[in-house]
Nucleic acid binder design. Structure first.
Lengths: 198, 198
DNA sequence: GCCACTTGCCTAAAGATGTTAGGCAAGTGC
DNA sequence: GCACTTGCCTAACATCTTTAGGCAAGTGGC
């Protein structure tokens, strides 16, 4: 009987494609076996179990995202870098919704620490070097950017913004403008300043 | 044989509790049947299927959230209202993580239109009456607020901010400050203004 | 080229969940 | 007290997950 040439890597890649086609939570060992025209049990020599498979897909997605982000940030700074990084997340989520969902999988702490997730945090910090933020504020800003990017992309992908008038591209551009303005005039703690012009 | 007194409502409530205990994606018809000490098939007289059960839990969560939001917004305006609404989402997610996850379930358009989801959008718009935004910008702002609230809460809940130094409560407060400042000085489209003081 | 050995995919089997069809008994209305 | 409805049941089947053990396709030594 001809061998199918299964490897953990091929299974992971095929699993990622499957996720983009049918949704990450529909990724199943059985479906993957069907895709390779192979019996289900055969996969268990290459991945530990279903959870292991999903974790591998998540790690793949995180790595792809981090690679794209690194490339997008190269040679850019300021608002240019901000928009580039933001668009990496948004475009990736639209091109690969299943992988993007996979990237949100909750990983156990050790796996998370060894994942490309830490590269994302580092890159966001690097991006903020173009703005004038000192340490505690920098972390706040990292969290804000992460929240906006993830929140927007996830709501847009989930259809939360559908059937409403202004195009989501316009909103996205305005939000990036707003974030840039905000980062350049980061308010001090406590009572935020009123408009200095008023 | 004694009757268990199953109803769609009781099943939905119990399903919501189960979601908070074990996670929304672990909510299963079987687990719910065990909780009522009843055979699995018995549930199928009250809910159509597993998807129906999950949809009902999602609608329950959306309603509870909207009720809390309405109460929190009553009598408040400006930053007070902003913080109150934001904290409704964050507190609800921390008290009821499974329900919060349920509220993110993708609903089909008709179900979504009939859900409490529309109340959320309306309340966010009402909140923005405390700021000076005209129509296209108001929608952009609604989307921004939704993104930040959902993104922050979901990252915090998923452990994305764990094991890092500044307390997440501090970040949250600073983000609310920043949003308030931003809404009061909403930048015009195109090139955002530089700091007017510089 | 043959032998022993490893490795890859297989069959078999058992457990969990989802779902449907049909039955019997506990409640309800006259 | 009787017919009727309703609620939970048993039975059965499909799908998915996972483990144990088997056979044959490749691999290395001679």
């Amino acid at each position: 009987m001809a061998r199918a040439g299964l490897t953990p890597e091929r299974l992971t890649r095929a699993g990622a494609e499957l996720a983009d086609e049918v949704g990450f939570d529909q990724v199943t060992v059985s479906a993957l076996a069907r895709r390779f025209d192979v019996k289900v049990a055969s996969l268990y020599s290459h991945v530990k179990n279903s959870q292991d498979l999903k974790t591998r897909i998540a790690l793949l997605a995180l790595t792809e995202l981090a690679d794209r982000a690194a490339e997008a940030l190269a040679g850019r700074s300021g608002k240019d870098a901000l928009a580039a990084l933001a668009n990496v997340y948004r475009d990736y989520a639209r091109e690969h919704p299943g992988r993007y969902a996979a990237a949100q999988l909750r990983l156990d702490p050790e796996t998370a620490a060894a994942s490309a997730g830490v590269r994302h945090a580092r890159m966001t910090r690097a991006l903020l070097r173009g703005y004038d933020l000192t340490e505690p504020d920098q972390t706040h800003a990292v969290r804000l950017l992460g929240s906006v990017f993830h929140g927007y992309v996830s709501l847009e992908l989930g259809g939360g913004f559908s059937h409403s008038a202004p195009d989501t591209d316009v909103t996205w551009a305005r939000i990036l403008d707003a974030l840039d303005t905000l980062l350049r005039n980061w308010p001090a703690p406590g009572e935020p300043p009123t408009d200095p012009r008023g």
